[in-house]
């Protein structure tokens, strides 16, 4: 199995088989909070992909070059959350200065991402073992995993936003109106995504 095949395996795993929202249950708050409109879902999705890619590379470097050599892995949670918070702040400031249009599009979603469990979640998953190779994640693998998990998140978010825009017009029973019907929709989507678990390439 070549390197590229491994990366494709990680990508399909992150987007479809172990979709962050629908099968791992990570990042549900923004999933239900920002999926009312398609445009805001796209903005949030882009911001998450961007931050997850950056966060996975930084946390991988910190974990392999600082935490592991000095045997302070127990500080992982504190260090990772601080790095992510600082990173989000930096990205926000840099965008504001150098790309105001992008800042306009992503700006309001960036502060929300600090407390989005998806970002910390992918950083922690990257410190474990790669389920396809059984070895620790390499740098490239962890960045690909981060970006692809972000794409999986955006995929689920956009699907959900599309359905919710149509649901606005539908006649929903009074007891289910509002969030309960959204949860049921999410459940049906998760049921569909269960089908992807048959896509197991390497086992």
């Amino acid at each position: 199995m070549g390197n590229i095949a491994g990366l494709i395996g990680i990508s399909i795993g992150a987007v479809l088989i172990n979709n962050f929202v629908l099968s791992r249950f990570i990042g549900l708050c923004p999933f239900f909070g920002v999926s009312k409109k398609l445009s805001s879902a796209t903005g949030m999705g882009m911001a998450v992909i961007f931050v997850m890619g950056l966060a996975s590379s930084f946390t991988w470097l910190i974990n392999s070059f600082i935490l592991q050599p000095y045997h302070v892995e127990y500080l992982q949670t504190i260090v990772f959350i601080l790095v992510i918070a600082a990173l989000v702040q930096l990205v926000e400031m840099a965008l504001q200065k150098y790309s105001p249009s992008l800042y306009e599009a992503l700006g309001i979603y960036l502060p929300l991402i600090t407390t989005n469990c998806a970002v910390l979640g992918v950083a922690i998953i990257n410190t474990g073992l790669n389920q396809f190779t059984g070895a620790p994640f390499t740098f490239i693998e962890s960045v690909v995993n981060g970006i692809m998990s972000g794409i999986g998140f955006m995929f689920a978010l956009i699907l959900m936003a599309g359905i919710r825009e149509k649901l606005e017009l539908a006649d929903v029973p009074e007891l289910l109106d509002g969030l309960p019907i959204v949860f049921i929709t999410a459940g049906l989507m998760a049921l569909a995504f269960l089908g992807f678990s048959g896509l197991n390439f390497f086992s």
């Binding site: 629908l22 309960p180 949860f183 049921i184 459940g187 998760a190 269960l194």
Partner: peptide, 22 residues
């Protein structure tokens, strides 16, 4: 078995919220 898998979680919370509203 679907109730201990991912979809069941969503269905259960919808059910509980529905009962509370009722």
């Amino acid at each position: 078995a679907v109730f201990i898998l991912a979809p069941g979680g969503f269905f259960t919370i919808a059910l509980v919220m529905m009962l509370i509203r009722y």
